[in-house]
């Protein structure tokens, strides 16, 4: 069973192993390589088979949990010692501190809104952008130009909401935990991070920036903390069933082929330090 650690607690070897595994997955020429994950995330921004699986829906958290697990397993195929780390943006809030150090994710974009110039993902020869809504082949960031980072108080307030989600189970749900995490409802823990990092992270092809996975790992950690408080059982997920065009607890998460229910108790697969 893997243990997912904070980016601030990683050793130099753990950081090097994670970066090397990402680059090996990027270079992989068969199977699900890194760009497959970028394309899949783009495809599931859209409504598929009448369902919003990945975004603006109840299944936002389980879909991304499985998406991260698939990536983590793909990285482990290159180095079994690698576990996905998380970026706790309530604690690590600097544009130059973890994870934005030169030995890990690298720093901001040139001129505050351009290509990343430091670290292992700077420049198209080190990390080439192949699938994107914009023409740059180099990773770009525009940190802190827009958006803001949530505070500990913001996260705590969401953890206190006992109901998972509420009708109409989408962007306009005005109560429940899920939309407060995703961002349709204040304090908006997820969307604002994409905006704050900017560059590719703000776009439909946001997984082009490896920081995407560290951010979503933290979102999954918060979901884990919520489940620790309120329960890991299938009865905690809503809707429970019978809601057309919404992913109910026993429906399959496409394209992964697992049900929402099967993703809820992850403790046999990984835990958080």
């Amino acid at each position: 069973m893997g243990t997912r650690k904070s980016v601030a607690a990683l050793t130099a070897t753990e950081k090097a192993n994670f970066v090397a595994a990402l680059k090996a997955l990027k270079a992989q020429t068969s199977g699900r390589n890194y760009d497959w994950f970028v394309r899949t995330h783009m495809d599931y921004f859209n409504n598929v088979n009448g369902h919003n699986y990945a975004h603006m829906s109840s299944s936002f958290l389980p879909w991304h949990r499985q998406y991260l697990l698939e990536l983590e397993n793909a990285l482990k195929a290159h180095n079994s010692a690698v576990d996905l780390p998380y970026w706790n943006w309530t604690a690590n809030r600097s544009t130059t501190g973890p994870p934005f150090t030169s030995d890990f994710m690298g720093g901001n974009g040139s001129g505050g809104n351009g290509p990343v110039t430091t670290g292992p993902f700077a420049g198209s020869t080190r990390w080439r952008i192949n699938v994107s809504a914009t023409s740059s082949t180099s990773l770009r960031r525009a940190m802190a130009l827009r958006g803001s980072l949530p505070t500990t108080s913001d996260a705590d307030s969401v953890m206190g909401v006992s109901t998972y989600d509420a009708s109409p189970w989408g962007s306009s749900s005005s109560s429940g935990m899920r939309n407060r995490v995703e961002g349709g409802l204040a304090p908006n823990l997820h969307n604002r991070i994409h905006v704050w990092v900017g560059g590719h992270m703000a776009q439909i092809d946001s997984p082009n920036d490896p920081v995407f996975f560290l951010h979503h790992c933290n979102v999954d950690r918060l979901y884990h903390l919520w489940q620790t408080r309120w329960g890991f059982g299938a009865d905690r997920y809503l809707p429970g069933g019978g809601v057309a065009n919404v992913v109910d607890v026993n429906e399959t998460l496409v394209p992964f082929g697992v049900t929402v229910a099967s993703t809820l108790d992850h403790r046999g697969l990984y835990t958080y330090a």
């Binding site: 921004f45 859209n46 919003n52 809504a133 914009t134 023409s135 900017g198 439909i204 092809d205």
Partner: peptide, 18 residues
């Protein structure tokens, strides 16, 4: 446009999303 800077949109910018 602010985000693009010197870049242009690609055909992926017309990707369906909703």
């Amino acid at each position: 446009v602010d985000q693009l800077g010197e870049q242009e949109l690609t055909h992926h910018a017309d990707h369906s999303h909703r």
